[in-house]
Design a protein around this nucleic acid. Sequence first.
DNA 1: CTGAAAGCGCTAACAG
DNA 2: CTGTTAGCGCTTTCAG
Lengths: 350, 350
Amino acid sequence: MATITDVSKKAGVSRSTVSRLIAGNGYVSDEARKAVEAAIQELGYRPNTMARGLRSNRSDIIGGVVVNVSSPFYAQMIGGMQETARSAGKSIIVASGYADRDEEAHAIIELLDRACDGLILYLENALRDDVLEIVARSKTPVVTVGGNECPPARARVTIDNATGAEAGMRLLLEAGHRHIAYLSGGTIYRDTYERLSGIDAALAGFGLSRDDIYVEHGSFSETFGQQATARLLIERPQTTAIFAGDDDVAAGALLALKGAGKRVPEEISLLGFDDNFHARHLTPGLTTVRQPVDEAGRVATRLLLSILDGEPVATPIITIPTELIMRQSVGPVRSLSPTSRTVAPALTAS
Amino acid sequence: MATITDVSKKAGVSRSTVSRLIAGNGYVSDEARKAVEAAIQELGYRPNTMARGLRSNRSDIIGGVVVNVSSPFYAQMIGGMQETARSAGKSIIVASGYADRDEEAHAIIELLDRACDGLILYLENALRDDVLEIVARSKTPVVTVGGNECPPARARVTIDNATGAEAGMRLLLEAGHRHIAYLSGGTIYRDTYERLSGIDAALAGFGLSRDDIYVEHGSFSETFGQQATARLLIERPQTTAIFAGDDDVAAGALLALKGAGKRVPEEISLLGFDDNFHARHLTPGLTTVRQPVDEAGRVATRLLLSILDGEPVATPIITIPTELIMRQSVGPVRSLSPTSRTVAPALTAS
DNA sequence: CTGAAAGCGCTAACAG
DNA sequence: CTGTTAGCGCTTTCAG
């Protein structure tokens, strides 16, 4: 590979001149410019990133940590990050933290070792103390997205889980549902609590509280949705609507519902969260709360990029709104069966 | 950040000794080792990747190009790559080529500029000549996965599309289907042709040829599946089975089928390809040909890693087998309606 | 406007 | 076993 020295020799100028031309700073005469450009062209010269990085202490690499690279949800977020980063001439290295504190620590350290200019973190755990110190000492700017907070972060992008869950719950309530089950995700996730707080808000708007619905905690998985729903059908047959912690849980719930011969939404309504790819492919199409996760990735990256450019961060915390996606899985309460008829007006009943 | 010089001073040895200890080559006395380790610990020293890379001309970064980072299909592959790379202490930078020749060129150049030690490419187009030369000159080892071939590749991992499609078609044929439509993907993809050749093979096994089924080319998209199926229902009502080019196409086909009130698989069978996440969430569950794409990512990375280690590549071309996933969308031909009864025995009919 | 010079932090011979 | 030495390729003052 040709080096800057080769180019300078061929062009009959000094290396500094070549460097200046490439960097686009300092003055270069037209004559020199032409000679250098020709030489670069001819030699197929490409600057050595590592030498440049060593000198300037910038790698033009942004590091990203998400829960799991291979999940469609994070893949979309990474897509958004990459798109934005690329347009600024930066690359992205992503690592998975697997919602595990040590794995997250490992991932961050790996990225820092790669001399990333900045970090975008979607963490599910508090940063380990030693990592906190390493991050701080490296002075690498950090932006967080969703998930957990992180002290050294200069900016934070959150998805408005609370408002989304509130809108979802309100939809159910407005459709007349009063016997609602919320199949929550794992309790280690921050999202879980945010959504619960939104649910509380919606409930409060109807003069109700969380005690008036049934809440079960599990994990963000299809298995949980299926098992919990199967139990639900036996133990709480009066349930008219299920709000699933996410679309995977909803998919499992739907499986159980179908297995029990329940018609959705005629006999029981089902609401999801995320708007994953499969949401629209379920039958009936899943009504769900969309998290614009690609947008979150873009916003976070833009934020980090401006921090790297030394611009002051106008809004250190940006909230991305969710959106209720109406499909066919939520319907009004039907007062057809004797059971539901006696129950329907009982606003204050458990 | 502490440098190797700081460590050597603190430990009272030379930088070389520190370097040797870290690299694990050369002899270091126990005494020196202890002093250095203590100093490293105390200073929180981490070697500077760029300086090291500049010197040794190795970045420990592997570059990957896939069609689209945010698609679940490639996300899974990236997951496999990353897992394997990480266990060897390497990181991965991925870029999207968007099945476009220039975008692919751009992605490869970007990765090469990042001084990647090796490249894993999933390309859909022939390499642009200038890029070919750049890759060759950089002497960066290349491994390809799926997609298109690529001259400079030292090894190639393919997914056995042909055998997979053959198994799929045979399943349909064995179930008695003779009026089959194959809704192929785009003609720019290599996969498309490989699958067609497998289909030919299955057909030949039954004394049939491609002329005995109906083939329509489109794209690997839900929209295509839906539109083509809608047309099919009108123009070729005798069709008893649809083999979709991939699961997205199948999802679209299912939508059209349901829209037309067709029962799957009672009235018409549907077979997919890929086993994407949503395949099992469709109703009925989609019978499909699974591509173990995560495994392909792992194998490709392992291959590249061994090339980087200077090991001779035993098998320069590895084929990953596909697997037929049986769910509920394919059933036997029913000879209930008069139409199908008259048609069923007509093996040689179009 | 341009060149000379001085490293960035690290590694790898090569002598001790 | 260890220190010295000489750069890897590039950028950036600082004088011209």
